[in-house]
Design a protein around this nucleic acid. Sequence first.
DNA 1: CGACTTTGACCTGCGC
DNA 2: GCGCAGGTCAAAGTCG
Length: 616
Amino acid sequence: MDKGWGLTLRDSDQSIGFFSNKPPPPTVNSFQRMFQGIEFSGKLGRTDDDNPAPLPSDENRLVVNEVDFFSDKKRVVDDTREDQDSKSSINIIATAVNKDDKNLTAPRTGFNLVNTGLHLLTANTGSDQSTVSDGISSDGEDKRAKNELAQLQVELQRINAENHKLRDMLSHVSNNYNTLQMHLLTLMQQQQQQQNQATEPAHEREIGERKSTEKHEVGRVVVPRQFMDLGPSGNTAETDELSHSSSDERTRSGSPLNNAETGSKKSTGRDHEIAPSDHENSNFRDGKRSSTAREESPESESHAWGPNKAPRLNSSKPLDQSTEATMRKARVSVRARSEAPMISDGCQWRKYGQKMAKGNPCPRAYYRCTMAVGCPVRKQVQRCAEDRTILITTYEGNHNHPLPPAAMAMASTTTAAASMLLSGSMSSADHNLMNPNLLARAILPCSSSMATISASAPFPTITLDLTHTPNPLQFQRPAATPFHVPFAGGQPPSAAAAAQLPQVLGQALYNQSKFSGLQLSHEMGANSSHLGHPQIAQPAAASQPGGASFADTLSAATAAITADPNFTAALAAAISSIIGGAHSNNNTTTTTNTTSTTTNNNNGSNSSKISSFPGN
DNA sequence: CGACTTTGACCTGCGC
DNA sequence: GCGCAGGTCAAAGTCG
C-alpha cells in the first residue's frame, strides 16, 4: 500500500519526484499522514489509479530505484513494476514527467522544456529497456540512452531542487506550528495579565480577607504560574504573583520547597545560603540544614544530596530549579488495598525515617529512591487509620534517572500528574476555565470519583483512590475505554491494579498535560533528561500487566481523552477564552471570578478531604 | 562489608 | 514565644 504514491504540485504545473537524492525517508504514506489537515500548495496523493506503476523493473536503470519517471495514466505500463515497487521504499511518481510527447499536455509544457528527448522513449514505453541501454542496442539506441541519461540527470537536478523546496515547506510548516504555539502562549499570558490587572483590587482584597485562612490558595497561584512562565524571558506575571505571595511569605516559606522557589527573593541569609539551584538534586530540606552543623554531614549523604548543599556553585539554572521545585511539590497519592507493607512500583527505595502521625495509629514511613544518586523522588507510605487494609502511598518528585519498565508506570504517573496538576492549577488560579477538578474529570471522566485533585493542599496532590469501585453515575463514556480496564468488574482493585493504573493514568495525564500546558510539555521535554519523560513516551508493553500494547493503550487513552466531551469542551472553552479578546475578558471577569471562587471552594473541600489523609 | 532498617534527635513551619 | 506536628538526619543495629 505504500507504493505508487505520487506527489503533484498543481499550482506550479510541475511534478516533482521527492526524496530522489535521499535515502528512503518515512514512506510517503506516513508523510502524508503527518500533514493531515495541513493544506499544501501541492498535493500528496496516491497514484495507483492515476499512474499505475509504469516502469518495469530494471536493475541497471539509474536512479529509478528511488524515483520513477514515467508517463501519466495514458501510458501503457508494465505491471511487473508493482513487484519492483515492493522493494523500493519510496516510489515517487512524477506525474508530469511525461515522456510521451503524444500525451504531453499543455500544463506540463514547463517540464517539456527540458524533456527534449522524451519522444525517444515512446518506442520503449512499456518495455523493460525503456530507460537505460543494456549495451546490446544499436548506435541509435545508445544515442537514445545517452539522451535519456542526460535527461534523467537534468530531472534529477530538478528533483533535488524540488526536494529542497519540500524541505523548506516542511520547515515552514514546522515554523508556523511553533509560531502558532508561541503565539498562543503569548495570548494566554497577555490575557492572564489583563485579568490580573482587571481583578487586582478584588484579588488583593480577597487575599487580605483570606490571608489567614486560605493562604494556600494564594500560594497555589504562585507555583503554577512560576512553572508555566518558565520561559527564557523574564516573566512579569511571575513577579507579580510572587509579590502577592511575598505578603504571605510565612506561609509559603513554611515549605522547604518554597525556600528554593523564593529563596532568591528573600533576604534572609539562610535562604540566600541555601537557595538550591541544581534542579536535578534539589533537596531543599537538606539545604535548610546548611546553616547547621549538619552541613558538614558525612559524604555519604552530602554526596547523595550534595548538590543541594552547594547551590551557590550553580546559579545559572533558575528556571530548571524552579521547575524542579515546583515539580517536586506536586504529589501523587495512591490509595489501594494491600496487605503488603508497600506497593511494588518497580523502584528501589530506602527508608530514611518513620514517624507516628497524629490521628493515625499506624506509623508513616518515609522512603527515598535509591536507584540513582541524588534522585529527588520520595514517597510516604502509611496505612489508612479508618481502614488499615488501605495503603496510602504518596509520591513526590520526578526521577532523574532511567527507570526499569516496571517502574515507569508510577514514575510516569507522578511526573505527568505533577505536570498536569501544576498546569491545571495555573489555569484555575488565573481564572481560566480549566481547573484541577475539571482537569480531573477530563482526564478520568470514567472515574472521577477515583481520582481527585487537590491543588490547595500544602502540596498540590492528586489522589488515586483504588479502594472504591467507580461510581456508575459518573460513567459518561462507553465502557470499552481503556481507563476502565483496570477497574472494571466491580471488584476492588488490587495492588496489581494499583500498579497497573499509573501506566494508563500516567500517560493520560501526560497527554493531557501536553494539551493544557503547552509550554509545560515543552519544558518537560527539555528537562526530560531528569524528568524521565522519554520513558513515558516509549512503549512499555512488556511491563503492561494486562498484556495490552502500550502503544494501543496510549492511542486509546489519547483517543479517549480527546473524545471526551468534558475535555473537548474544556479545551474549546479555554481556547475560546484565550482567543476571545477584550470582549470576552470584560464579560468573563466576574464570571471567571465566580467560577474561580467556586472552583476554589471545591478545591478547598476536596483538599480538606484529600490532604487530610496523610498528615492527620 | 555494604546496603538497608530502626530510632531518637533535630529542624522547621504553623497555630495559638 | 511556646508547643505541636511533619519531615529529615544519622548513628546504631540488622541482614545477606
